[in-house]
Structure formats: C-alpha cells, structure tokens
Design a protein around this nucleic acid. Sequence first.
DNA 1: TTCGGAACGGAATACTTCGTTCCGTTTGAA
DNA 2: TTCAAACGGAACGAAGTATTCCGTTCCGAA
Lengths: 200, 200
Amino acid sequence: MTAGRAREAARNSEAILAAAREVFLADARAPIAAVAERAGVGISALYRRYPGKEDLLRTLCHDGLRRFIAEAEQAAREPDDWAAFEMFLRGVVEADVHSLTVHLAGTFTPTAEMSADAMRASELGDALFQRARGRMRPGAVPADMTVLLDMCAAVRVLDAGRTTELRRRYVTLLLDGLRAPGDLPGPPPAEAEVNWRWRT
Amino acid sequence: MTAGRAREAARNSEAILAAAREVFLADARAPIAAVAERAGVGISALYRRYPGKEDLLRTLCHDGLRRFIAEAEQAAREPDDWAAFEMFLRGVVEADVHSLTVHLAGTFTPTAEMSADAMRASELGDALFQRARGRMRPGAVPADMTVLLDMCAAVRVLDAGRTTELRRRYVTLLLDGLRAPGDLPGPPPAEAEVNWRWRT
DNA sequence: TTCGGAACGGAATACTTCGTTCCGTTTGAA
DNA sequence: TTCAAACGGAACGAAGTATTCCGTTCCGAA
C-alpha cells in the first residue's frame, strides 16, 4: 500500500504534529523553524501541509479540544458521580490537553467549528461537575474546575515524563482540597473571568 | 527638602518600578517601551536609571526575592507551627512575589548576591515547612511548597484585584489538600527539578 | 531675570528575530 | 530513463525592539 515516499510523507505528518505539540507546549511563541528542527524535517515540509503558522496552531488546539471532549464523554459513562469527575480531571491532565488550549488560545483566530466545540466541551465539563457537586465542599463552582486545570498545567519541569508524574501528584492534592470541609473565601470565579482565552 | 524637579524624579523612579512590575508580570518578554508608557515617562527616564533592560529585570526580581525573605522571617515569628507556615504561604501569594521570580528568572544573569539570597530564601522556607510537616499528609516534601506556589501564581485573570482574591481562594484549597489524609502518588519533586529557574 | 545643567520625551538607529517564499536536489514509481 | 511529488534549507522582507541621540523643559542658584 503506502510505501516508500508516501510512507515517509505520512511519517513526517505525524512527526510534525508531535513536534509542534512539544515545542509549542514548551513555548507558545516558539518560531516555526523550531518545530521543523524538532521534527527532523525541513521548513518546506511544514509549509506543504499547512498554509501558515496560524493554521498549525489552530489544528493543534482543535485536536486538543477534541481530546478534551473525548475524555469528558468517556468519563461520563462512569456510573459513580465522583469517580466520573475524578476520571475526567485526571484524563485531561494526563493528556496535557489543557496546556494546549490554555497556552495556544489567542495565538490564532478560532473557526466557527472550534467555538462550537469549545461550547460543547464546557457543557460536558459542567455536567460532570454538577454530578459530583454533592461530594465537594460548599461554594465550589464549575469555573473552579477550569482554574484547577490551569493550576495543573502550571506544573512543569524540564523532563516531560516527570512533569506528567508530578501532575498526577498534584491533581490528587487538588481533588482532596476540593473535598475538604469548610467554605472557600471570596467570590468564586465567574465563567467569564476564566474564559478570557476564548474571546473572539 | 526634595521639591520640584527632584521630587518628580523620585516619583518617576517609583512609577517606573511599579510599572515594570505590572508589565513584566503580565508578560516577562514585554518590550521596555511598554514599561515607559505604563509609567507615563519617556524611554530616556528609564535608561537614566538602569544601564539596560537586564538590569531592570534583575532589580525587579531581586526586590521580589527580598520580599520573599521578609515574608518568611515574619512568619517565622509566629509560634504555632502550622499558623506560621500558612501565614508564610499566604503572604508570598498575596505579595505576588512568586510570579515575579518565576516568570523573570532566566531573563537575566543573577548576581552573586542574588544567588546567596535565593539560597537563604530557600532555607527559610524549608525551615517553615519542617516545623509544619507534622500536620501535613505523609510524603510531603519542601519542594512541594515551591510547586504549590507556582500553581498559585498560575491563577490569573484580567483584573489584578480579582486575581489576588481568587488566589486567596486557591491557597485555601491547596492548604486543605496538603493536610488531607492519604499518601501522594509518585516520587516527590526533587529540589533540583523545581529550581531550574535559578540555574546559573 | 538670566543661566547652567539635570531630567525628559521620543524620533532615529541598528540589529535581531521570524514567517514565508523560492529553487535546486532527491528519490520512488512507471 | 524520466517525471513529479517531497524535500532541505538559504534568502528575503516585514516586524519588533534595545539602545542611542539630540533638542527641549524647567528648577534653582546667582
């Protein structure tokens, strides 16, 4: 089937996406040349597949969004309310999907489809939150979930594997904090405060 | 005493530092012109006080470090072990000192004095941690404290005041998470993993 | 009132940093 | 052997930005 040159091209497409994910996750403003270098290809290999930098960023972010939705849908199948919620957060953190959307948003103009997906993602997330709300400390709101994910995304060390391990550690801590008794101080975050990323 | 022109100059010095703090906290790579504009002064007012951009950054970061030390020293006077620890974390978060050091580190080469201060800061923090360790969940290490501060610094919304309010909310949550029962998964962060900011 | 000069504002300069384009080369398939 | 899809990477041009420079302002001393 796909052999020789065609196979190499397919491999490159994958390599470019993977490289882009790594590079732009480390620094959203990284030059496109860094992606090519990381992927081990020339710049033209990149431009053959994407009309420009923005398109690459958009694709990357949209992929992340889809993954986010997939995680939410899978978690929703879990019957236990808290378990579903926990599985969702852990899944999103594990896939490093939130960093993707957080860091990259604003570096490109979203398509209509992306906006729709973003809305759907937020609905799915909220639904999982509502189911688990009964087991959380009073005063927790869905927007808290977004902030917690931001906080996890902020955990990063030089080695990617260790970053993942450490994040698992702190999701645990955060989830425990979310179930602790006692009120949380101050007005909770508003949905709008937390979604400045998606302002069109 | 200082009146007229001299007073204006003093005001400007303050305005420049304040503006620099705001601007570089929002974006560590901001152009120096943005600082001047924010401070309401010309670019030359800036270069009169600092030989170059790097010196400004260094000064800013060093100020933050000193503030960090001050917070630690003050908290150390609190007799109750946990209260001291909590006061320390809340103080550092409140002053937004950690963001300063986190975002700015790496944008300049540190002086010997800064390195010394950084070491002292870390010792003071560790001491506070050790005192409170008995009331934390098992497996918590001093480096966790650094990560928690990173996570708090990651909480940010457009409005600075709200950012502070929200951070108070999440320090609370984190502290509760730190006292929750149960082990934390994975190998804890190593001191070196967490201090890549200060690599000389 | 008159000057000297400290302090300024901001245009001009001198680079550096990227996104994108271009062109010559490679290589698998017919 | 030939064709064209895919490449690699130098070259180009548009931005962006740190730093310098110079003409202007205005406090304070004479």
